[in-house]
Nucleic acid binder design. Sequence first.
DNA 1: CCCTTCTAACTGTGATCGCAGTAGGTAGAA
DNA 2: TTCTACCTACTGCGATCACAGTTAGAAGGG
Lengths: 233, 233
Amino acid sequence: MTRALGQDELRSLDLQPAERVTLNDTVYADLRELVISGRLAPGQSLSTRTLAATLGVSPMPVRSALQRLADDGALEGRPNRTYRIPMPSPRAFIEILRLRLVLEVAAARQAVPLLSPQALDRLERIHSGMYDPVPLDLGTFLSLNREFHFILYTAADNMRQLRFIETLWLQIGPLLRLVSNETDGRTGQEPHGEMVRAARARDAAGMAAAMSRDIEEAAVGILAWLHALNNQA
Amino acid sequence: MTRALGQDELRSLDLQPAERVTLNDTVYADLRELVISGRLAPGQSLSTRTLAATLGVSPMPVRSALQRLADDGALEGRPNRTYRIPMPSPRAFIEILRLRLVLEVAAARQAVPLLSPQALDRLERIHSGMYDPVPLDLGTFLSLNREFHFILYTAADNMRQLRFIETLWLQIGPLLRLVSNETDGRTGQEPHGEMVRAARARDAAGMAAAMSRDIEEAAVGILAWLHALNNQA
DNA sequence: CCCTTCTAACTGTGATCGCAGTAGGTAGAA
DNA sequence: TTCTACCTACTGCGATCACAGTTAGAAGGG
């Protein structure tokens, strides 16, 4: 038997500093992923107890997680009633749209000089994957689209900015899936191609312009759909 | 005795739609105000039970509120240890600074065409109040500064944007008070004056430039202070 | 057959309790 | 006097319980 390893030696092995993971955070992260991926449709209601039973934990951490999600605007909680995924009003959607144009365009611009060669390759691979002649499952299409965008936002290397953007996607995730499902609108081919080009050319202005166009083009369809929904109701 | 008022009649009196106010939200709002106003210094620790006893409620809603505040980045929670007000690293401060330049400048620009005459007057009154020859208590100075900025951000009429900006101020509030206290630096006179002028002239570009300058000028001093702190430690 | 009314189940919120882990203060030894 | 080791008080987290309000569905009357 040799002596036990010292703390510094253990830390040098890249071991996490323990970082006690709480149930609360786990549930929160899971639900966040569930919402942002759009697997929950607007109007879908979530009950604390039911969720807790499903996840096999007590209602307590679930309650906390739901409250935090409601804070983010990803859920709406009516008094003494179930939480549910909100259907954004056209006005709310425009608020989000304007914020996306500000934050995501800024992030994309900042990312340009920081993108690693691997990130560039990954961007290009995703792009060709998304718009391949072979038809793609809507779920994986949206998933790829999300990965494409967040490669850029992550490269911008501003944790808080990334979190803000995620919060915005959290609010349009369910909508995105729903609308794409009903209108089969898969926009973004040209803007994405332009982004790939701008990224390789380290052309920050081009990147910003393309990102802006991508966001706006997708928004037009959704906004029309939302207005139609509001008029018929 | 006349008949009781109907629901519609009551609602027409501008009564709140009941909107059951939870202890959780009350505590959260109170703490948020406490942090953003800078009355809590970085390093200050907050214990759930102590706070609960002080506020006369059970620890439960306090815990919830603290978790939400930690989510916002206004508090940091070490594992199994007290929550406390974080001292931002220079890197973190720069992240916040860049976000402020993006969001607050955009908000100020959007606000220009929307400012009411009352808001314009209020802006001017605050401005002259802040930089009056008579020396002003630091607390009220900062409070006025905050009100000045948020008149603009509120006028931009984007709830989500406003909330993002508040989240940023939540993270620099304690720092602002602390640094101002130690360096007695009260910047912003010229930029604020320029903002008032731009607002009256409905000059969006001028507003954006002045806001940008205001944020940057204040940041320079704080950043120097932070670097000094990091070197001595 | 349809509409109204009432009840029973379910909702989130808040309080209280038990647990595992941390930290600071105190007592003992060198 | 100084350093070390222990120990008590306190920390947040999770579970369970009690409560008031809501709602959907069933039962009864028209």
